[in-house]
Amino acid sequence: MIIIDNLQKSFGRNEVLKGINLNIRDGVITAILGPNGSGKTTLIKSILGMVIPGDGSIEMNGKGIHNNWKYRNQIGYLPQIARFPENLKVKELIRMIKDIRRTEGKEDPLAEMFDLKQAMDKPLRHLSGGTRQKVNILLAFMFESPNYILDEPTAGLDPLSLIRFKELLIAEKKNGKAILLTTHIVSLVEELADDVIFLLEGNIFFSGSVEELKSKYGGLKLEHSIANILSGQHV
């Protein structure tokens, strides 16, 4: 459960978030949509404490995150660009993160699921883009967390891994986890998301279910509704 209240952030003169109010509920998959530069990643990084908000507050499971760091124990995070220490082997990276978090992880079933057994002994710099993304997924989901935050989780995944990933998401949702994801892939949103947040130039343009979005902005398919919003036909 994440509650965001009047979140604002500027980089210099550039206002990226202009007062976001948002509830991310448990047991629900929330998708953030929006064109490039609409503030999706900044919103996510604010929740993680990587970007420090100019104004407003963020609460996670009942506690404010400002000047707090322990709350990150409650997040499994998948960054948009998987940047790792390149000299480490995959299993060394996993061991390191387990050591830092001081928890055991469930990396073995995940490695099995995403066919990563062979990659374990390879240095990260030798991995292909898709394999890196699978490692990224493994790192995000290997610890039991009440919240998962996923920035473009399906980039570069092969079809089989994509199916497995969707199954994983649905299973975690049924476990009562709050799942927040951003994506540009509309079909993924239609298939998985319960709540949709549409960000436009730092404001929440729409918040509700997929069905509501479709009925409000026309189009039988979600992508048409989104195209309608972006081309300005909503005015």
């Binding site: 993680l48 990150r72 940047r83 830092i100």
Partner: peptide
């Protein structure tokens, strides 16, 4: 050179 390492760590439950 170790920027990515730092970014990885920043998302973990660690103090800056």
């Amino acid at each position: 050179g170790s920027k990515e390492f730092a970014e990885l760590l920043l998302a973990l439950p660690l103090k800056r």
